[in-house]
Design a protein around this nucleic acid. Sequence first.
DNA 1: TCGAGATGGTTGCTCTGGTAACTGTCGATT
DNA 2: AATCGACAGTTACCAGAGCAACCATCTCGA
Lengths: 144, 144
Amino acid sequence: MSKLALEHFLPYRLNRLSSAVSQQFRAVYGPHHDLTVPEWRVLATLAQFGTMTAKAIGKHSSMHKTKVSRAVRALEERRWLVRRESEQDRREESLSLTAAGLKAYGEIVPRALAFEAGILAALGSHAEPLLEALALMEERFPVD
Amino acid sequence: MSKLALEHFLPYRLNRLSSAVSQQFRAVYGPHHDLTVPEWRVLATLAQFGTMTAKAIGKHSSMHKTKVSRAVRALEERRWLVRRESEQDRREESLSLTAAGLKAYGEIVPRALAFEAGILAALGSHAEPLLEALALMEERFPVD
DNA sequence: TCGAGATGGTTGCTCTGGTAACTGTCGATT
DNA sequence: AATCGACAGTTACCAGAGCAACCATCTCGA
C-alpha cells in the first residue's frame, strides 16, 4: 500500500508555514498587539486605495463579508475608520481611515516591510524563484 | 509615507494560498467528505508510524493537544482507531488504526498524492526551487 | 514512604469565522 | 406607481480551536 509522509506533504507544509508566519507577524503590530488579521487587512486595504465600500475591501483582501463587517466595526470603535452613507446608493457605505488610522498604519508599515524583507533576505537566491512559484500557484488556486 | 500592497505581501499571500489549497484538498477525501483536517492528520500520522501516543501525534503533526484529543475521539467513534492503555505508563494510551481506518487511508492516499503531483506538475521547472525555498522557510519558522 | 512537582490527556470557557436568514435599498418590468 | 428579484451589509446560530484548569498517574527527593 502506498504511503504518504505528512511532513513532506505540500498542503500540510503550506498550512504550517502560513500559520507560523502569521503568528510571527503579530509581533510586527508592535504597540497595537490586539489588532487581528482581518483588522490589519482592512486597514491596509483602505490605506492603499482610500475610500471604498466593504464589498470592495472584501474582494481585494479575500475576506468573507461577515469578516469584513466585524473588522470594520472594530476599527470604527477604535476611531481608526469612519463610515459615511453613500449618496448614490444608500445600501452601501463609504469607508475611510481617520487620521488616527493612518497614523497607526504609518507605524506598522515599515515594520511589516522589514519583516518581509527579512524573510526574503534569508532566502537569498531562493527568493525570486519562490515568488515566481507562488504566482503560478495563485493562478491555479484563484480567489473563490 | 511608505505604502504596502496587500496583494503582494508575503504573509497575506501564504495565508490565501494555504487556505485555497486546503479547501481544494477537501475534495480529495472523496466519499469521506466530513473528515476534518485534524482527523486527516491523525489518520496519516498513525498510518505512517503505526501505534503511538496522542502526544507523539501532536508533535509530529504540529497540532495542539486539544486538537489531537478531539480528532482522536472522532476517529474512535468512526471505528477507525482504537485506544489501548499503555502498561508501562498508565497516563498515556497507545493509539492505532483499525482495519477500517487503514482501508480509508488506503483510499485517500493515492488521491492525495495525485493532488500534490498535479500541483507540482503545473509548476513544472518551478517545483524544485519552490520546495527548496519552503524548506528554508520552515527552518526559519520552526515548530513552536 | 510520602509529598511535591511534572506529565498525558480531557474538558469548560471563550473567541473567531462561516452559513444562512434578515433588513433596507435599488433597478427593472409591468 | 407597484412589485419582484438582486444586492450591501448585519446578525443569530453553530462548528472549530486555543487557553487554562483539571484529573490521574508517574517520578524524584527528603
